[in-house]
Amino acid sequence: MPAPPAPRVPAPRTPAWPPKSAPRLFVEPALAAGERRVIEGNPAHYLARVMRVAPGDAVILCDDETGEWAARVADVDKRSVTLEIAERLREREDVPDLWLCPALLKKDRFDLVLEKATELGAACIRPVLTRRCVADKLNPERARTIITEAAEQCARTALPELAEPVKLDALLADWTEDRALFFADEEGGESAADAFCYHDGPAAILIGPEGGFDEAERAAIRAHPAARPISLGPRILRGETAAIAALAVWMAEAGDWLDED
């Protein structure tokens, strides 16, 4: 009897490059293919000491301008990592023209707002100071670090703009009717889902502090021609919960979640 045919051995698969597990970093200035980029400071420590990259390893870079790039480690020194930019993987993402205007909260709670607003795709974060705010200052360097790390962890290719905190009366005075100001009012308003679903154009969501807006602030907001009071449901939400919930509803009803297959 003839010998049975030898089993077919599939050819080994070429590993995907860059691997999904490659570390990600946002860098400045804009990147270009063929460039050598020296990474220093905390990012270099992260690559060399935490991720333990070695020559030939992949690193994914984003510059918040041109998109996402694959790079190879060329050299690892005590205080720096040299990368060779290989190719662009993705264009910088388009995000809905939505601003989040959250009242300042206690540090750990506002950190959560910054992180989740970044993950959910807010285009701009404009902190607001109100009469009942417990906090009155924001460390911009720390805030940008939180935003950048959140964007790296969720594979964003764009960073939300971070504005300096501004008092509520100044925010309203400079606001134009071109951008709808959806005001999360504890006393009620149109359902957020309904309001967002039928809106087309630039928008912002205004969220109050731990103690809510006082009566004078609420009246001033409602009197503004761009303001649209909305309800986030039958329960009173904490400031950080309201911000996250409102952004999630927006992305589901009017944002870029609608573009997913």
Results as ranks from 00 to 15, higher is better:
D77L: 11
L159D: 05
I39Y: 01
F182H: 06
E65P: 01
S231N: 05
A32C: 09
C62A: 15
L120S: 05
D169S: 15
E40Q: 12
A195T: 06
D214M: 10
V249L: 15
V95Y: 08
W99Y: 08
V76I: 07
I85A: 03
V76S: 08
H224N: 10
A220C: 05
T157N: 05
V95S: 07
L247C: 05
G201V: 08
P4N: 05
P18K: 05
F183D: 02
L247G: 00
Q153H: 08
L172T: 10
A248C: 05
P160F: 06
W17M: 07
L100T: 00
P140F: 06
A242Y: 05
A117F: 00
K20H: 15
A158E: 05
L159K: 04
R13L: 10
T82K: 01
G34C: 08
R222N: 11
R235C: 09
R37E: 01
A245E: 03
S191F: 02
P127D: 01
P4C: 07
A170T: 11
A6F: 11
H45M: 07
E187Y: 13
V53L: 07
A252N: 14
P43W: 08
F183Q: 02
I230E: 02
R24H: 13
D136A: 08
E215R: 14
F213N: 05
V128L: 04
C154Y: 09
A11F: 09
D108W: 04
I207A: 00
E149P: 04
L83G: 05
I85C: 03
D169R: 15
E93W: 08
P18T: 10
L168E: 06
W17I: 00
E161F: 11
M51A: 13
L100A: 01
A135D: 04
K137V: 01
R131Q: 12
A117V: 01
G188V: 02
D63S: 06
L105H: 03
T157C: 05
A6M: 13
D214N: 14
C133W: 04
T66K: 10
T157G: 04
A86T: 13
R126W: 02
V9Q: 14
D75K: 15
W99V: 02
T145V: 13
L247V: 06
R235T: 06
S231H: 04
E190L: 11
A170N: 12
P202D: 07
W175Q: 03
I207F: 00
R8M: 09
R72D: 14
